[in-house]
């Protein structure tokens, strides 16, 4: 649904060049919720702004719903008619809501319809319908300043949906909200994704956002996508930084002569008593350093960090046994454990 290839964005200011995007290839499938996560300055914002060409990419192409937007853009800095039409079919939600304070909630939702040239009566009908969809039917006559943050974002979402978009871009939509409100907004996005078959591309710096609603995710660092895939693929990738950060288990080795192993359970493997089997079969003492069971991208996943006595070389056989059980095993080296810890924070 959204494909970017070789997307590069270089900002020039006072002779200095800053590369915000460095050859980003992104592929978002129709009907999925795709999360791009990264720290501030990783290039997430540039990426999402390049998707509807609010920022012109320096090079590379952006295709949304089969339409090459970069080709529509033309040369000048101003958006041509075709690009503007294409934009009206892409909804966008912002971190700071960006509602017009001089308009009522209903008029804010009507704004994209005014731009599309929809007649007055039809606009009102549609706006009220959308406000009902986001649960704010009773606030139609209020001004944005009279609403709470969560309500404002609901209006923002209703407004983004006014042009019947197939794609919704969410630029840190929940970053200005408290955890409770964040959950309800994410739930709304998830519902809309399911009900309307909306493809959602969201950027965030919060792991929880990816964890609770994303089907796929990508990790951005320094303008590049370092890892990407569906959440279940990521969790099944040994050594995946994103998986470790999505699902952190804490715990440090208790001494030098120890081997620390992360065991990830999916599906039916989760119900088998593998740890006690391991202990009995090889007659070793296992300490559990940390464990968690959670739902990630709609999947039940368990992860456990265990410690085996002796170095890695001494434990090749028991680790092999765990692998045979169909579990995903990551041996945690000192370097890896530091990384995972960072992810957990």
């Amino acid at each position: 649904m959204i494909t970017t290839s070789g997307l590069t964005k270089v900002y020039r200011s006072r002779g200095r060049e800053v590369t915000a995007l460095d050859g980003v290839d992104l592929h978002v499938r129709e009907g999925e919720v795709y999360g791009v996560i990264g720290q501030s300055g990783a290039g997430k914002s540039s990426l999402i702004r390049c998707v509807n060409l609010l920022e012109r990419p320096t090079s590379g192409t952006v295709t949304v719903a089969g339409q090459d937007l970069t080709a529509l853009a033309g040369r000048g800095p101003r958006a041509g008619r075709e690009l503007r039409q294409a934009r009206s079919r892409i909804g966008m939600v912002f971190q700071h809501f960006n509602l017009l304070s001089s308009r009522t909630v209903r008029d804010n939702v009507e704004l994209p319809l005014e731009i599309l040239g929809v007649s007055g009566k039809e606009r009102t009908r549609k706006a009220l319908e959308l406000l009902d969809l986001v649960g704010l039917a009773d606030k139609a006559g209020s001004y944005p300043a009279q609403l709470s943050g969560g309500q404002k974002q609901r209006v923002g979402i209703a407004r983004a949906l006014a042009g019947d978009p197939k794609v919704l871009l969410s630029d840190e939509a929940t970053s200005a909200l408290d955890p409770e409100t964040t959950r309800s907004i994410l739930q709304l996005l998830r519902d809309l994704n399911r009900q309307l078959g909306l493809t959602v591309l969201l950027i965030t710096h919060e792991m929880d956002v990816v964890k609770s609603i994303c089907d796929s995710a990508a990790l951005m660092e320094k303008g590049r996508i370092v890892e990407s895939g569906t959440v279940s693929e990521l969790l099944a990738t040994p050594g995946s930084e994103l998986a470790a950060a999505l699902f952190p288990v804490g715990g440090e080795a208790t001494g030098d002569e120890r081997t620390v192993v992360d065991v990830t359970f999916h599906g039916e493997a989760a119900t088998r008593p593998v740890i006690s089997q391991l202990s009995r079969t090889y007659n070793i003492d296992i300490s559990i350093l940390g464990a968690a069971i959670d739902t990630v991208g709609g999947l039940q996943v368990g992860r456990m960090r265990i410690e085996l006595p002796g170095r890695y070389e001494d434990n090749v056989v028991p680790i092999g046994f765990l692998r045979e059980q169909g579990l995903q095993i990551d041996v945690v080296g000192p370097a890896r454990s530091a990384l995972v810890k960072e992810g957990a924070q």
Binding site: A79, Q85, S88, M92, F94, N98, L111, I115, R159
Partner: peptide, 10 residues
């Protein structure tokens, strides 16, 4: 941001 929002609506 408001300008950007209206741009994003076309």
């Amino acid at each position: 941001g408001l300008v950007e929002a209206v741009q994003s609506m076309g």
